[in-house]
Design a protein around this nucleic acid. Structure first.
Length: 300
DNA sequence: CTCCAGGCGTTCC
DNA sequence: GGAACGCATGGA
């Protein structure tokens, strides 16, 4: 297991408890929250990250290997944030495993892992992840964030933290009750009816997330894809980020291009091991980093 | 004005 | 089965 010390503290300015973690390896808040897996955390003025998950608000400060969870005590850490942030996973072991499975196909994966060494796959809530990735289709991240933020403000439970009001992600029942008219103010476009179909199925017990967490991959995928507006891509994202199934490997147009570029002879998606989805995130981040560097170069 | 955004459903062959 | 095409919306 990852070994670091856990100390409770107090933030006098905000008058909230804190949890200090040190030294934490393979964690970078910027990489983790800015790699398209999470839509409810944002960088704030002082460089820390702040957001809402599991109906709670959290601020995360990072100085190298020192992590400060602001607005959390030890119990919050142990019951919510340790799992959410993936801090109970041994990323050293995971990276070794990924190397074993992908290394056969060349060393791109090692470059990607070096580039994105601080990414952790967040273990979010199933309903929120499913709904969020339905909204992500044919859409861009700033607008996805805006839609979700506005919907939370309109339909979610208020949360008071740091002297402000935040809003939890709305539950499926509330969204059902809102109906298509109630969702209209959030400007989801053609995705609104998809979200409603998912909410309806969830409310009627057709989506048993605890069962889907452990069911065979194809079975889980099939159930998720029975929702109108959920295809292979959205299903795999819901599985990876919401059901915490790290073998799920989302392939979209971007990823297709990345795979064709680095693995022109193809790679057997079924032989990539239990952490293929984490590897996917490394590759995605790596490629995005490289193309943004290219654009910088062109500008100069 | 056009183009695009980590897709998907429908409609053709 | 697989290649087109439309889809709502807002930002560049």
């Amino acid at each position: 297991m990852s070994e670091f010390s856990v100390c409770e503290g107090w933030d006098a300015t905000l008058s909230v408890p804190t949890v200090e973690l040190f030294p934490v390896a393979f964690f970078d808040a910027a990489q983790t929250f800015d790699c398209g897996q999470c839509f409810r955390f944002d960088r704030i003025a002082d460089g820390s990250y702040e957001g809402v998950a599991f109906g709670r608000c959290l601020r995360i400060r990072q100085e190298g290997a020192r992590l400060t969870l602001v607005g959390a005590n030890r119990a919050d850490y142990e019951t919510i944030w340790r799992s959410f942030l993936g801090l109970d996973e041994d990323y050293g072991m995971i990276r070794d495993d990924i190397g074993m499975h992908f290394g056969l196909y060349g060393n791109t994966i090692y470059e990607a892992m070096a580039c994105a060494s601080g990414i952790r796959i967040l273990r979010g809530e199933p309903w929120e992840a499913l709904c969020s990735f339905i909204l992500s289709q044919n859409n861009n991240i700033p607008r996805i964030k805006k839609i979700i933020g506005n919907m939370a403000e309109g339909l979610g439970e208020p949360i008071t933290a740091f002297g402000k009001t935040y809003y939890a992600f709305p539950c499926a029942e509330t969204i059902c009750r809102a109906g298509i008219e109630g969702l209209a103010p959030y400007r989801m476009g053609f995705r609104a009816r998809y979200v409603l179909d998912a909410a309806e199925k969830y409310r009627q017990g057709e989506l048993d997330f605890d069962a889907l967490r452990v069911a065979p991959y194809e079975q889980t995928e099939k159930v998720l894809m029975s929702i109108c507006g959920v295809g292979k891509k959205v299903a795999s994202c819901a599985m990876l980020y919401g059901l915490h199934r790290t073998e799920a490997f989302p392939v979209d147009v971007w990823m297709r291009r990345v795979l064709d570029k680095y693995y022109p002879d193809g790679l057997d998606l079924s032989s990539l091991g239990p952490y293929a989805g984490i590897a996917q995130q490394y590759l995605f981040f790596y490629e995005r980093e490289k193309s943004s560097q290219e654009r910088e170069k062109k500008r100069a």
